[in-house]
Amino acid sequence: MSPLLELHGVSASYGRATVLYSVDLTVEEGGVVALLGANGAGKTTLLRAICNMMVRTTGEILLGGLRIDHMPTESIVRLGVAHVPEGRGTFEELTVEENLRLGAYTRGGRSGDLTRSRMLARDLGRVHGYFPILEERRGQQAGTLSGGEQQMLAIARALMLRPRLLLLDEPSFGLAPIVVRKIFEILRAIQREEGIGMLLVEQNAGLALELADHAAVLEAGRLVMSGAPGAIAGDEAMRRAYLGL
């Protein structure tokens, strides 16, 4: 496997407040990395740093060997990085289908209208396969969906990009356990069928470690442990301090 995403000595700050200190992290092509840690450890900031959103970063961030730090967010997205932000970030006043079409906004701009609509139809079918409920709700305003459906819509919209790398920020946030389990099952299916690399930020360590093939723990902006999910889940100190297992 070759590295898809590499972070070398990445520090990040909001104004004068430094939130991340020299983080090294790698996501392999098609691999799933779980990033764990307490509230305020800097997990969300790390994802925002990768997309260059509102944070100042130093260090190197590479996607498939190409430097992407200092690229504007839209350009990073165009390279195939789909970010499902904390709080889902759906376009609440637009319909489910419009949200999904926006997910494919950057794709196939030059290839003419016919191929574009064919491509859209094919990809809508693909994400509806993972999330049948979204097909039922296609004409509904996104803001009227339940929390779980909105999370599904956010993930589906990210898939419309046909990303190489999916950044997931707390997909379990605020959802009932049964819904969370369902979403993780779908994520597993997506990973199996599409081989997309994923960087998954989670408070729900149990489910995240089940899905991941690599895990890292962030504490107060520093990476304190990194290794196989089993090793981290088995480490007594880690379990008590960060994972709540």
Partner: peptide
């Protein structure tokens, strides 16, 4: 139009618009 949809998206949620690759 696709551009019109992108403009509506920008008005509703600029941050998410950046994340789908719209040049806000």
């Amino acid at each position: 139009t696709r551009l019109g949809l992108a403009m509506r998206a920008t008005a509703i949620n600029p941050e998410s618009s950046l994340l789908v690759g719209i040049r806000v």
